[in-house]
Design a protein around this nucleic acid. Structure first.
Lengths: 214, 214
DNA sequence: TTATTATTAAAACTAATGTTCTATAAATTA
DNA sequence: TAATTTATAGAACATTAGTTTTAATAATAA
């Protein structure tokens, strides 16, 4: 159905990608010319026009190196990086009296780049560093970085960062709504669940990924 | 101690960073000029020279948009991403008869971008997708992506990708050298270790990180 | 103050680079 | 085969953009 790229066009796309990878800056028309052994800049231009029309890239007219590769363009190529803020620690164990969301401003914690394949939505994903071992049976342990999507509505069984209003504490547990109570279930056989009134619990996000450095 | 950037230099650095963020391409000298309300391109050039000398950026001479922001330069900005190849699956359970390293050419598996903080060395780190649950007690389970550094010498207790020469099988286990035998220990209470002659085992890499998408 | 250095300015210069024009060859289609 | 489209070539053109020159002004040191 879709337009079949010529060998030359494939080669150009590939070159652009490699060039971007190598130099962090798009190639010029003449870079492409020499890189792909093309006789004339006009041939490069000609093929770039086609690649643009076919949706593989975008060109900024009269702008040097004004080539922008588009997603879905070439094979598996997607610069799928997300920079997310690490807001602080989250207790997996005894809750700690810190509202992680409130510490946004505190730059004690860096941003980190995470691979986008961990995430579905493009919303304000954030990271929390795990303290404690209450979730060890869920394969999350002390020092792990958990990636969370902000949600207010958790489903039963989700691993969530929960904020206890009255206690002013945050904790990482599995979420179960039982009547008008919420059971916050650790995943560690030696620890007991916390039962709190639903009105006292604010779900701050649910875990969508885990990164561990060994 | 270190050179104190002038307000103008701060402004230029900030502009470059924002420009990169917005357009994925470095600004031209004249972009900076108008963006920072500077009267002359030579003033931009002058300050860029200083910024280069002070190690905040790198300039490619005679190259349009040849400005490269350096690490540690401005605030927390570090594009710390590593693109690593995912070479295939690794058995955490029954070994699978595939030499993952040999499948390098097979592009059945993508590259992925991973956060650089997972990794110490800059060597040829690679990823393997975990199949099976033999390492579940080590908090690694089916579907996880394990990040490995190529090593030939494992220490006792390291989690390694081991290649069994005779069987032509690869497996993910903990490594223990015991005399001239190697014990490959699963981390799953329902599974038994594999004992093999040391000469029959090639350590292909040791696990330095784990990424799980939930 | 005087000398020196750092910074700003305007303009010109040169090289880099996107774009266009015309012509030719190759591949398709009528 | 003739007509049409697609692709390639070479060259020239025009703008973009890095660099240099010279001069003036501000800041600092002697």
């Amino acid at each position: 159905m879709s337009y079949q790229l010529s060998q030359r066009q494939e080669s150009i796309l590939g070159f652009i990608e490699k060039f971007l990878d190598d130099y962090q800056i798009p190639p010029t028309v003449r870079d492409i010319q020499s890189g792909c052994n093309i006789s004339s800049t006009s041939v490069v231009d000609y093929n770039l026009q086609i690649l643009q029309k076919e949706g593989y890239l975008n060109r900024l007219p009269d702008v040097s190196r004004g080539i922008e590769l588009l997603e879905n363009a070439y094979g598996e190529s997607k610069r799928s990086i997300l920079k997310i803020p690490v807001l602080g620690h989250i207790a997996a164990g005894e809750p700690i009296p810190v509202n992680p969301i409130a510490t946004w401003e505190a730059d004690e914690f860096d941003n980190v780049d995470i691979p986008a394949f961990l995430i579905n939505s493009k919303s304000n994903v954030y990271g929390l560093k795990v303290k404690g071992e209450s979730m060890i049976d869920a394969l999350v342990t002390d020092g792990d970085l958990v990636i969370l999507e902000p949600t207010l509505h958790a489903n039963n069984g989700d691993m969530v960062a929960a904020w206890l209003d009255k206690e002013e504490e945050a904790t990482l547990k599995r979420f179960y709504l039982e009547g008008d109570m919420v059971r916050l279930q650790p995943e560690n056989s030696s620890m007991k669940p916390i039962m709190v009134p639903a009105s006292n619990v604010a779900v701050r996000g649910k875990v969508v990924g885990v990164i561990r450095s060994i």
